[in-house]
Simulated scan of single mutants.
Amino acid sequence: MIKEQISQAILVSGESGAGKTESTKMLMQYLAFMGGRNNNTGERSVEQKVLESNPVLEAFGNAKTVRNNNSSRFGKFVEIQFDGRGRISGAAIRTYLLERSRVCQVSDPERNYHCFYMLCAAPPEKDIKKVKHV
């Protein structure tokens, strides 16, 4: 990318359960490492923010399926911008929901999106009030 001075793209594809999401995480970690910079300000870097967004996206777009307990039910386009010296300067993540039907109807033994179960598993109201006062 730096040598040729042109944009590069990586396409990760494969069958269900092939490891696309895990491969993408590893690619992002590698790019964040290679395009990282020292951050002595104590603030989270752009690289950290990009990597930290993954669990949130997974909660809202992954579900248990017959083939996989943590299957991505969405497509994801990740654009990572670099400056002239090869350091990450920004990022944009676009998600494309592939299975709207999962919100209304789920086939046994599959489950809905993880986020619904996380919301249902929230602590009782009295426990939340205890934490607020600490």
Rank of each mutant, 00 (worst) to 15 (best):
K64H: 12
R67V: 14
T21Q: 13
I6F: 02
I128R: 06
N62R: 08
K25P: 11
F74W: 08
A32M: 09
N38P: 02
D83Y: 12
G19R: 05
F77P: 00
S16Y: 01
E99N: 06
D108K: 06
Y117C: 00
A122E: 06
A121E: 06
R85N: 08
L31I: 13
T24H: 01
N40S: 14
I6H: 03
E22W: 01
Q5Y: 00
V56T: 14
K129V: 10
T95K: 03
G86H: 04
L27D: 01
C120M: 10
N54Y: 14
Q105E: 15
G84R: 03
G75V: 03
E52P: 02
P55Y: 07
E99R: 11
R102P: 00
V78F: 07
R85D: 14
G84H: 02
L31W: 14
A9Q: 10
I128E: 03
T21R: 02
K20N: 04
T41F: 07
G86N: 00
Q29E: 11
F60M: 09
L31R: 05
A59Q: 12
M34G: 11
A59R: 15
A63R: 12
P109A: 04
S101H: 07
R44S: 06
G42N: 07
V66C: 05
E125H: 08
I6D: 00
A63C: 06
Q29M: 15
F116D: 10
L31K: 01
N68H: 11
T41C: 01
G36Q: 09
R87F: 10
Q81R: 13
